[in-house]
Design a protein around this nucleic acid. Structure first.
Length: 272
DNA sequence: GTCCAGGCATGCA
DNA sequence: TGCATGCATGGA
């Protein structure tokens, strides 16, 4: 991949294994919006971006070299060898056709606070409604970064809300989880940066102590917000997929189970 | 009307 | 330890 800087645009040439439609709308991130021209707009860590792709060329609009290097390079996982990873995953009989069918799904390195909140909201919920709740949360309590696009509100900001405030967003019974989580993170009782530095097992144990966080939500947060590519979330869709692996997961998943999971999740939602 | 969605806390055995 | 149950909401 090579990088060209053209004013407020950044052009990435020769980008392999990236499908924006699949990656930005496959249930791992809930805030990207597809534009009429086919591009995607969103806000990450309080920074707006419009991104599009034609062939192997990616165009990042309205951004800077500084933001590219500090946010987008890591967020889109541009330095990881997804071609190699996909080839390795295709050693598995089920993933061979699945990787081909949905080629270009990547894991987005999301902000840990946003990911944790998002997946607390996701429990016993569907993706459309999850997006609605998170969208209303950001519009009500985030900062308007540019017209119609809002930052994800900080724990500090949300720590002043009541359970009723979260219920008013449509969070349902998860409101009480969000209320306590916001306060605990805001005062440092829960330290997400510290959790990020732990091993996968220790980090999971820490997350499981949080009110409203079980094994599934913990694994989603670990995979999408804490950089643990080996976390393997099993939800109702993945439970159906697990019937295809009666003897456990294959060896080729080691270390990248989360990426395999994301392909299987997408396959399950479209085929089971 | 019933069932379901990127599940979890709680109570009880 | 494992299992049953209640839980908010909106779309199918």
């Amino acid at each position: 991949m090579t990088v060209d800087y053209k004013g407020s645009d950044i052009i990435l040439n020769d980008v392999k294994c990236l499908n924006l439609d699949l990656t930005l709308d496959c249930g791992q991130a809930f805030r990207w919006e597809k534009q009429k021209d086919g591009s995607w707009s969103g806000v990450v860590r309080g920074i707006f971006l419009n991104i599009s792709k034609k062939g192997d060329t990616v165009i990042l609009k309205n951004t800077t070299k500084e933001n590219f290097e500090s946010v987008w390079l890591d967020y889109f996982d541009f330095n990881k060898d997804y071609v190699g990873i996909c080839n390795r995953l295709k050693q598995d009989r089920l993933l061979a056709p699945t990787v081909d069918a949905y080629y270009g799904i990547r894991i987005l390195n999301q902000d840990s606070w946003e990911a944790l909140c998002s997946f607390v909201i996701s429990q016993q919920n569907n993706i459309k409604r999850i997006k609605g709740i998170i969208g209303r949360l950001c519009k009500a309590y985030g900062d308007e970064v540019c017209e119609g696009f809002y930052s994800f509100p900080s724990a500090q900001r949300l720590s002043s809300l009541t359970v009723e405030d979260f219920e008013a967003l449509g969070a349902g019974y998860r409101a009480k989880y969000l209320e306590r989580l916001s306060k605990d993170v805001a005062v440092g009782k829960i330290d997400l940066e510290k959790i990020k530095a732990l091993s996968l097992d220790d980090a999971r144990k820490e997350l499981l102590n949080i009110f409203g966080v079980g094994v599934k939500v913990a694994n989603c947060a670990l995979l999408f917000g804490f950089g643990f590519y080996d976390a393997f979330p099993v939800d109702v869709w993945m439970k159906r997929v697990m019937e295809y692996y009666p003897n456990g997961l294959p060896e080729c998943f080691d270390g990248i189970g989360g990426i395999a999971q994301q392909y299987l999740f997408h396959w399950a939602r479209n085929n089971l």
